[in-house]
């Protein structure tokens, strides 16, 4: 059953569909929140995200775009708690257009990726989580982060470079 069908059924008031939707997206939402925040806050924020999702669900006009809408809500809750870390001026990373080799694609062990993610700045960490761990396309990452697709690409590029540096520091050879 597609997400859209589940969302439509939930919008009509079917509790089982809502429970199924929650069961399906519980771990992806938590993964995003946990990779952005510490373990102590992850569960509370995840609960807050789901409360906002349930309250906003009747007003969701495009049920087919549930995933980006869900992560937009999750991102809002996360950024509320990481306001300081998102405060960097955008121009500083817009200029980073040099293509960097992708160390993530070469990493078979995703656990190693997770272990170094925490060391990256919030905007780069977020884009890696959405793109690699949540498997969202660039366009949806752009929609969720409210930035142009080009900025997503340059941010991904910078994130890969930072990730490579972190991996090299830890002695990991992709």
């Amino acid at each position: 059953m597609t997400d859209e069908l589940l969302v439509v059924r939930a919008q009509l008031g079917e509790r089982a569909a809502l429970a199924e939707l929650l069961a399906r997206w519980r771990v992806p939402v938590w993964t995003y929140v946990r990779r952005m925040l510490d373990a102590d806050r992850a569960d509370d924020v995840t609960q807050e995200v789901w409360l906002a999702v349930v309250r906003g669900l009747p007003r969701l006009r495009e049920p087919g775009r549930f995933a980006p809408w869900l992560f937009t809500i999750a991102r809002r809750s996360v950024t509320d708690r990481l306001r300081g870390e998102y405060a960097r001026p955008e121009e500083a990373w817009e200029v980073d257009e040099e293509v960097t080799e992708d160390p993530v694609e070469a990493m078979v062990d995703r656990a190693a990726l997770v272990s170094v993610l925490a060391a990256l700045p919030a905007p780069e960490r977020e884009i890696l989580v959405l793109f690699y761990l949540e498997d969202l396309p660039v366009e949806e990452c752009a929609h969720i982060c409210r930035i142009p697709a080009g900025t997503v690409k340059s941010r991904l590029n910078r994130a890969r470079r930072l990730l490579r540096e972190q991996l090299e520091e830890k002695g990991h050879r992709p």
Partner: peptide
Amino acid sequence: MTEEPRLSAQDLIERLAPALS
């Protein structure tokens, strides 16, 4: 990536119950 959410789907549903009651 062995870490998992502490709240099960059922826990979450129960915590959302007041809004859905």
